[in-house]
Design a protein around this nucleic acid. Sequence first.
DNA 1: GTCGACCCGTGACGAATGTCACGGCGGGTG
DNA 2: CACCCGCCGTGACATTCGTCACGGGTCGAC
Lengths: 200, 200
Amino acid sequence: MIRVLIADDEDMIRTALAALLRLEDDLEVVAECRDGESAVAEAQRLTPDVCLLDLEMPGLDGVDTAAKILRSVPSRCVIVTRHARPGVLRRALGAGVDGFLPKSRPADDVAAVIREVAAGRRYVDPEIAADALSDERSPLTDRELDVLRAGARGETVAEIASALHLSAGTVRNHVSSVLGKLGLASRQQATIHARERGWI
Amino acid sequence: MIRVLIADDEDMIRTALAALLRLEDDLEVVAECRDGESAVAEAQRLTPDVCLLDLEMPGLDGVDTAAKILRSVPSRCVIVTRHARPGVLRRALGAGVDGFLPKSRPADDVAAVIREVAAGRRYVDPEIAADALSDERSPLTDRELDVLRAGARGETVAEIASALHLSAGTVRNHVSSVLGKLGLASRQQATIHARERGWI
DNA sequence: GTCGACCCGTGACGAATGTCACGGCGGGTG
DNA sequence: CACCCGCCGTGACATTCGTCACGGGTCGAC
């Protein structure tokens, strides 16, 4: 019997997954948590075999939670996330996570991955792994990303410039360079583009 | 037997809900869709009793999808959403939706709400309903909101104008009116402001 | 050393954007 | 009826934004 802890702040998805896992004969859901702190506490109290952790949680996120759990109890951790990017995958593997599953995968796969991880194997979503290997890194420089971040809420060029202690012309040049690289036409399109890819 | 269509772009939550609903004796999941367009097509082909629509979907969002379905077939629609705000509730009810359920509710409630709606009753999450009654309505007119929606992804004024079959000057006037009402300085700030409040 | 990146700045140009004043249309309400 | 409001449009205006060309600086790689 594999003892499983589930942590997700969204009640609907957490209870749905828990209900589905309870239908499996070899799985036992021993805890349901709605944030990272309580997941750590419950994991230390119950030492589950596998912890299924959502990445997007208030307070401690999934990776931080996994790191704390892995430092204190001999459990294994699986990260589940809606926006799976190579960057977070690297962060998760660095924290010692054994499973990485995006929410773009059907719910049936969850039980299979839990069994894999409980058996001592690792599981990483092949699509994300391929992305991470091909290393689709941002083509933008650090400073260009700074400018996008500083202007992410619709600030004017002058405000970005003063926030970054630059001249307005320099900011415009950075923006122009970004738009050229991305093939876009305006700053807000660039910030949307960058946000969708996890660059900012 | 209540025939149900499910639409959600996130495979994990959609398949999980479908699997749970299939366990109910009186429910039959007749279609699973991953976007609004295919949901409309399937609804027209199958005329399900209840359509369970996620709000956040690429292309047509849940409310737009519900509006299209309700105009063409005698189905009933339930909107499910992670970010439930009074603004979207109003928009949903305006489109003729019969159920409104945030994802902060456990998965068990989904079947119950589907039965309510199939029986001809309406269901609105009481917490959101209370918020909607107490909170202020958007000071913007319908057309102004249309303009913000059409420009939400950084489109240029000319693109907004042609999308809405307006002249560029009219679009600029609407934008100017919006900025005056909200005390802001640029369109992107206005779209961020409106999105945070669920107006678009 | 040279070369290429990234970074910062200037100046000038055209295009896009927001502001204002104005008029016309329709639908409500007092 | 007059009146207000939302809606659509025009024209003119100042500001902002993005583009381009240019120069100077640092730093690491070859």
